[in-house]
Nucleic acid binder design. Structure first.
Length: 241
DNA sequence: TACATATGATCAT
DNA sequence: TGATCCTATGTAA
């Protein structure tokens, strides 16, 4: 393991020759557990990208933070928000400040309900808050609120238990679907049309994200875009109440 | 060559 | 709320 870009040089040297014992994800946080109680914490953030090669790796770009050659292949990591070594207790302190992960079957949706109930913040902002729920992200927050017919401005505590549980269920369903496909697709299969999904532009696989000004796929009302929680959000003012 | 852009999160104020 | 960090890529100049 090396760090062509240099900023993870020390960490890479410490991991060299060590055995990887397991990996885990919590929301968008990735934990690589190495022998000796060392965790490599990776978070891709907005710009981070992995590249992998099973054979014939290309040379790493100069910005590559982490270059890892194993017997089974080569992995490069560039642009992450986090790439750091930590102890198990430090890993735990990250876990402690993150809400339930919809992709974790042991996750407790009631924690999500409690988090929403505590706040008058718009539900659209709370969905990005990692303390309330892990790993939804800006695309899914817009899509999930559309799918459940919820206006993003509604104070999160105005959602009743049934609405929250339905929102959680939709979140689980959509994130699993995305995980299975390796990409975000929220439009129901029946609405995708005859075209092959892979060939569709991204905005054709989504209901509202990135579709500001275009007609709602369900009611033709123009999709509205604004900022919420510091990020752009789109919604249908007619379908979402 | 320069600039715009991107699916995120943290910290200071 | 705003500033800041992080990199590759595509388009414009």
């Amino acid at each position: 393991m090396t760090s062509p870009q240099g900023r993870f040089a020390e960490g890479a040297a410490r991991l060299n020759g060590r055995r990887l014992e397991g990996t885990e994800a919590l929301g968008k946080h990735l934990f690589y557990r190495w022998e000796g109680g060392l965790t490599l914490h990776v978070h891709l953030g907005l710009f981070g990208k992995f590249k992998t090669y099973s054979t014939d790796p290309r040379p790493p770009t100069p910005g590559t933070r982490l270059a890892w050659q194993a017997e089974t292949g080569t992995l490069y990591l560039a642009g992450p928000t986090a790439c750091e070594l930590m102890s198990v207790p430090e890993e735990q302190s990250i876990r402690d400040r993150i809400g339930p992960d919809p992709l974790d079957r042991r996750a407790d949706p009631d924690q999500f309900f409690q988090a929403l109930g505590r706040r008058s913040t718009p539900v659209g902002a709370v969905l990005l808050d990692q303390k309330a729920v892990a790993g939804i992200g800006n695309v899914y927050r817009a899509e999930l609120l559309f799918l459940r017919g919820i206006a993003p401005h509604r104070p999160s505590r105005s959602l009743d238990r049934d609405e929250v549980m339905a929102l959680w269920g939709e979140t689980v369903r959509q994130l699993r679907r995305g995980e299975r496909r390796g990409r975000i697709v929220t439009v129901e299969p029946a609405e995708l049309g005859a075209a092959r999904e892979r060939e569709l532009p991204r905005s054709e696989r989504l209901y509202v994200y990135g579709r500001a000004g275009r007609p709602c796929r369900r009611c033709a009302t123009p999709i509205v875009a604004e900022e919420m929680g510091g990020r752009p959000i789109s919604y249908c003012p007619s379908c979402q109440r």
